[in-house]
Structure formats: C-alpha cells, structure tokens
C-alpha cells in the first residue's frame, strides 16, 4: 500500500455516507454577528487616547447578549506578515492598502503571541463597538489620523478580574515626539513621565496621580515615538462599561498589565512598523 492508497482511503472515508450539511450561511452569519456584538462606536480608540490623558476613562455600551462578552483564548496567527511592502509612510497621508494589510497582520500576529505570554491564564473578549475581535488589528480607513494607523483592542479576564488593553501603531511626523514630550512634562492632571528609550526613541508613561485610592479605576498609557511610528499602549483595570450612567468602575485591583509590562510592550521591535 502506497501513500497514494492512504490518500485515496482518506478521501473515501470522508465522502462515503457523508450526511447533509447542518450548518447554513444564515446560521453562521447570525452566530458571527452575535459574537461581534456589533454596535459600532466610531473612533473609540482615538477618543480613548485624549480621554485617558485627561483622566477620564473611555466608555462603551454592550450591544447584544445580556450575559456580556464572550471570553476565549487568543487565536493563533496562521501566516506571518512577511516583509514590509513598499509604500508612502508620512504623517499627512493615508497608508496604502498593502501597508494597511501588512500592518494589521503584524499587530494581530504579535499581540496574539505576546499578550498570552505575558498573561498565561487570561482569556479575551471583543470590546463592545470595536471593529474587530480581541487583539485583532484593524484600520478605520480614510484620511489621517484614522487612515494611517492600526488599532487593536481587547477585554482581558484572569483570576484577578477584567481589564482592557488598547494598542495602536500610527504614522506621525518626526516632529510630533518633541511636542508630545513637552505636553507630557506640562501635564498637571494625570502623572506623565518622560523616559529615554532605545535607539533615541521617546517614551512617555502616563499613570494615575500619586495617592489615587485603591479600588479606583486606573489607566497606564504609554506612548513611544521612534522614526515615523507612534506606538500607543493603554491598559486599565475596568471593563469599559458605564455603571448606572457613570464612568466605568474598577473590575480588578490594578490594570491588567503593570506599567513596566506596558512600556516593554510598547517598545517591542515587532510594533515598530513605520521607520
């Protein structure tokens, strides 16, 4: 018996007596839509950036199931993104479709490998209103700033509770780093620290003011400026849900990653997409 015989035997095995398909496109669409909980809030990641720096948590609203989001293990990355394709990288121009596809795959693949490594027992759910599933890169399209960046969001649950993670990698002019550093040094609302990163990169870490009571919502916000890349990582200890019309409450003691972990994530070479 040759390999071809085994091949033939396998093909006969799966086709002889094969029953009719029970799944339908309609049924799968409904299951997919339920899974996405698709009530779309435009620009949620962008609103989160300014809102968090001002000390106000970004909020979302559940779409669908009264049971809340569905938490699952991270998904694998089947095919690595490969080399960066050619294309214009400029703060005032949208990314080409090829660069968008490469960048979203790069972010997706890296986060689905690295975040589970940092949080081995965690599970992930889609942020309500987000355009894609947890830790999945997406691009909102259009002109900058939406058109030349990639976002990825996730609710993250482990034994300590639920928190959220936002990562975005965008294209900025190299002059933006100095401006952001100046704003950070002058921030009197949140606590913002300027650090020097590797290879001349600028690292800005925003945390809650000293003396923030335990049990309060907290955010760590990291911005790394290197080349034409602005790499933004924000983690919180909330599930981003309004409670009785008010801002989200803490759903775990501390943000889901430590400030150091958030900084290291933002400094990952794999997220340095736009030199």
């Amino acid at each position: 018996m040759q390999e071809a015989d085994v091949q033939e035997a396998l093909k006969a095995y799966v086709t002889d007596g094969e029953p009719a398909m029970g799944l339908t496109a309609d049924g799968v669409l409904k299951a997919g839509r339920r899974s996405r909980r698709a009530r779309r809030l435009a620009g949620v990641a962008g609103a989160g950036l300014a809102a968090v720096l001002a000390g106000v948590a970004a909020v979302g609203v559940w779409g669908g199931s009264p049971d809340g989001p569905e938490y699952m293990a991270a998904d694998p990355c089947p095919v690595p993104p490969g080399a960066r394709p050619a294309g214009v990288i400029a703060g005032d121009q949208p990314l080409s479709p090829n660069l968008v596809a490469w960048a979203t795959t790069s972010v997706t693949c890296y986060l689905n490998a690295e975040v589970p490594r940092l949080l081995p027992t965690a599970t992930y759910a889609q942020v309500p209103g987000a355009q894609a599933g947890p830790l999945m890169g997406f691009n909102l399209g259009g002109q900058p700033p939406w058109g030349n960046r990639v976002d990825a969001l996730a609710l993250i649950r482990d034994a300590k509770g639920v928190g959220d993670l936002t990562v975005n990698v965008g294209v900025v002019d190299e002059s933006v780093a100095a401006q952001a550093e100046a704003e950070c040094r002058g921030d009197t609302v949140a606590k913002c620290t300027v650090m020097s990163g590797p290879k001349g990169s600028t690292v800005l870490l925003g945390t809650e003011p000293d003396g923030t009571p335990a049990g309060e919502p907290k955010n760590w916000v990291v911005r790394v400026y290197r080349g034409h890349s602005e790499i933004y990582v924000q983690v919180s200890n909330t599930d981003r849900q309004e409670k009785d019309g008010a801002a989200p409450v803490a759903t775990r003691p501390e943000p889901v990653l430590s400030a150091d972990q958030a900084v290291q994530l933002a400094l990952s070479p794999e997220l340095y997409l736009f030199p």
Binding site: L23, G27, V28, L29, A31, G32, R33, S35, R36, D75, A101, T104, T105, T108, Q126, Q131, A132, G133, M136, G137, F138, N139
Partner: peptide
C-alpha cells in the same frame, strides 16, 4: 467548523 467560521467572521475585514 461553526467555531472556525464565527472566528473568521470576526476577523473578515482584516
């Protein structure tokens, strides 16, 4: 297969 297609649906745009 249903699981695979639900996950595909979530990621389809990207």
């Amino acid at each position: 297969v249903q699981l695979a297609f639900v996950r595909l649906y979530r990621r389809w745009p990207s």
